[in-house]
């Protein structure tokens, strides 16, 4: 089974993408999509990526909901900055955050989350020291951002990717 489908999640989402792209649930397309998914899985196996075992479906959904809420909220915040008067002196800057997360997939998910929330940008992750550098548009308090990233996202990602 692991030889035939080395990455079941990837193959399953490839099949899902194929069916979405063709907007159908007909048996022919399911068959064709399965072939594509199998070949895609083998192709990925040739690249030998590290194995991922995401656990706790509930935690994944809670994190996704949290991220959607944060995206909407920070969209409003950035819109306010763009339209806002120049009266307040804004500081832009880099924040360095020491992370415990080491799983490459967890880090990739964190990169997507941080960059998709407007106002923060993933800049660099030092693998040796485990220090993440992010760029923040409206920097008030560095410790606050460390708390947000560590407490809000990293804790939940550690739960999912152990």
């Amino acid at each position: 089974m692991t030889r035939l489908v080395p990455f079941p999640l990837v193959s399953l989402s490839l099949l899902g993408f194929w069916l979405l792209l063709n907007e159908t649930l007909s048996p022919g397309h399911i068959l064709l999509g399965s072939v594509v998914a199998l070949i895609g899985g083998w192709g990925l196996a040739a690249l030998q990526p590290p194995k991922a075992r995401p656990r706790r479906l509930g935690a994944i959904f809670r994190l996704a909901f949290l991220v959607v809420v944060d995206i909407v909220r920070s969209n409003a915040a950035v819109a306010r900055i763009i339209f806002g008067p120049e009266r307040r002196e804004r500081t832009v800057g880099f924040v360095e955050i020491p992370l415990e997360l080491r799983n490459p997939y967890g880090l990739a998910a964190l990169a997507c989350i941080i960059t998709s929330t407007p106002g923060t940008l993933w800049v660099d992750f030092n693998e040796a020291s485990g220090i993440l550098t992010i760029h923040v548009l409206d920097l008030v308090d560095k410790a606050e951002w460390v708390d947000i990233i560590k407490g809000r996202y990293e804790r939940r990602l550690l739960e999912i990717f152990t």
Binding site: N75, V78, S116, G119, H135
Partner: peptide, 8 residues
């Protein structure tokens, strides 16, 4: 940071 508004 600005284009991320449009992309999300």
């Amino acid at each position: 940071h600005a284009p991320t508004l449009g992309t999300t």
